[in-house]
Design a protein around this nucleic acid. Structure first.
Lengths: 235, 235
DNA sequence: TACCATAAATTGGTTGACCAATTAATAAGA
DNA sequence: TCTTATTAATTGGTCAACCAATTTATGGTA
């Protein structure tokens, strides 16, 4: 079955991504500048040789990333962030969700440990109750020998909520699916570690409750050290 | 002109966001479960009482966030991340790009300081050259008394690149437009600080060059301390 | 000439019909 | 009865026409 490893994921570039790449070209060649109003959608389709639906998809993506701003019944303008940064942002958004696992885990640890720090600083009594509930739910599943990845994940989300930093929570949620899909693809289920995980979770909560910022960071780092080791192993 | 301050931004929920909210309702009420195949797009539009275009927009967004997976000519399935996490993710993605400024800045500092740490650890000689170039470009603009926000930003991007962590760079780029739009809206241009900024940038590069991780973190934190103070002031 | 009301053209937004691929159902053959 | 072609229905993907709001052009009036 080792033959399967000789095949790699086929790169399929969606039509809208192709268009984004072309628009990037228009910017590089100076035909499009920050602050400019784009040509009308119809003229652009014509010029790029694609359907309006696809062009619209591309524009929507670019707007989501803050690169464009669409004014209803009026036109679409390029945000004033300057060409070099603009190009960087575009090439970057094309490769989002296609990150290497090491970067993903490294970043996850950064986000989670700092979330724990903020949680230790800002947590309310309500947050502690929520954390305890998540902890108990996780513990119960583990004791019943059921799959607890869901409850595990939810505990980490609760920490992010206790940090009272909405951006940090959002970013964590953004990278979570990527990490999980990698886990599923490579069957890194980390069985048998569940009981240990529960203990480590308890430690994290303890430090957050005591407002011990450095302790919380340390506890989270310890908890995730297994994954760190794994990542460093594959490099 | 103070009258203007009595008006707040009108909340406009896009059609696709409304649909996402409805789909969230379907999940909450148990009509949709992880692993399920969704009803066909046509039946869904009919049930939700919306056009297919809007429904498709919503599905595309949900797919971007890893909540759904669309199989061409076959169907759309709900990712197996479990209902509670799913709900959290959905409500969170609806409020993306609508974050409070304090969380944004707090997170930016976390990302940039840790990026600097990794840069100090992983930087190559090429990275140092790139950093120097960005530094000189910034310096030149400042000496000519021209607007240098673009070059300033670009310098920070170069640090992210020197960290050799693609995820960290992506996340930084994601929140950057939000921060900049807030800066523009509230006219926080921080004039006159440019010369100081150049010096601080030089310090950061020095620590990165010397592989001094803690020093790099400290230098970045110092550099951004002005914004920290501002944020703590408005709380 | 300057101004304003009106009409034509252009804009992004939306809709419904159409396409090819897939799946399910059906009918023919062993 | 089971297997296998063949057909019909359903799927997501795509396209072209249409809509209302906006902008621009036009022509008439002071």
């Amino acid at each position: 079955m080792e033959l399967l490893n000789n095949f790699s994921q086929i790169e399929i570039e969606s039509p809208s991504d192709k268009i984004i790449r072309q628009i990037k070209g228009l910017i590089s060649s100076g035909q499009l500048n920050p602050g400019d109003k784009l040509p009308s959608e119809r003229k652009l389709c014509d010029k790029l040789g694609v359907g309006r639906t696809h062009l619209r998809d591309a524009l929507k993506k670019l707007e989501f990333y803050g690169i464009l701003k669409t004014l209803p019944q009026s036109g679409t303008v390029v945000a004033g962030i300057g060409i070099p940064a603009l190009e960087g942002l575009i090439s970057d958004m094309l490769s989002l969700h296609n990150h290497d696992f090491k970067s993903l885990v490294e970043t996850r640890i950064i986000l989670e440990s700092q979330a724990a720090r903020l949680a230790a600083r800002n947590r309310t009594v309500d947050d502690l109750i929520e954390l305890d509930n998540a902890l108990l739910a996780h513990q119960k599943k583990v004791e019943d020998d059921q799959s607890a990845v869901e409850e595990d994940l939810l505990f980490h989300v609760k920490i992010a909520e206790a940090s009272h930093n909405s951006v940090l929570k959002s970013l964590m949620l953004i990278i979570t699916p990527d990490i999980m899909s990698y886990f599923n693809q490579h069957n890194i289920c980390s069985d048998g570690k569940s009981a240990k995980a529960v203990e480590q979770h308890q430690a994290v909560v303890k430090y957050i409750e005591a407002n011990d910022e450095d302790g919380a960071v340390r506890a989270v780092t310890d908890h995730l050290s297994d994954i760190i080791d794994y990542v460093n192993g594959i490099t």
